[in-house]
Amino acid sequence: MSDYNFAYLDEQTKRMIRRAILKGLAVPGYQVPFASREMPMPYGWGTGGVQVSAATLTPEDTLKVIDQGADDTTNAVSIRKFFENTAGVATTEETEKASVIQTRHRIPEAELSEDQILVYQVPIPEPLRFLEPRETETRKMHALQEYGLMHVKLYEDISQHGAIATSYAYPVKVAGRYVTDPSPIPKFDNPKMNMAAIQLFGAGREQRIYAVPPYTEVVSLDFEDFPFEASKADHPCDLCAAEDSYLDEVILDDAGNRMFVCSDTDYCRSRRDAGHMGRLSEEAA
């Protein structure tokens, strides 16, 4: 291990973050202000998630970091290395083997268990921010459960596009009380938020932490006549033939050819290892 304190942050900072996490768990979906620190990475690269992970990790943990579902992108690799260096924890790419999973903008396809913790990186934690820029006002709106504006926004989607066009960061109501930003996960992932694992959310630049305890009711906002729909590209994965996973679209050439591939790289790899073949498996091999 290195000369850093365990998991990089000093103990007093970790205590401050830990107290915020506990209040976040006690009031599910409510954004707890915290004194976010400068981290050795730029805002937008997961400084909030990194601070929450640092306060949560123990030396025995196995950490997995994903960026849009992938274990091998720059952001995921650098955060994984950061904690290998500063906390000396084991790391993995396999969802089932991880005890703490830090994620940017996806929930893994494999169902998470009670012993796992999912840490989200959050850019804008306030779901009402683009409707009302003033923090003083959004605080009052949450206090009074004044969420009509959000329904107006979803209604305007329907009036303009014929359907609710919001496709990511789709607002949810947690435990019947707070309207909460699920971070920019695709709305395909929203139903998975009713899970057995502990969900923690960290927004570094915006200095907010919030949480969803296990088995907490998380409802995506909708209307009776326009019910919420967890949509994805209507395609099987071209590498593993999965019909049930969220897909990325990849442009292959200038002639308009494209492929769809699982966004969750670990899920796709484990299916291919198990012998599943997609449309383009032959070429990829």
Partner: peptide, 8 residues
């Protein structure tokens, strides 16, 4: 650092 991480 280690013991408080376990307790937390």
């Amino acid at each position: 650092a280690i013991q408080s991480s376990h307790v937390f």
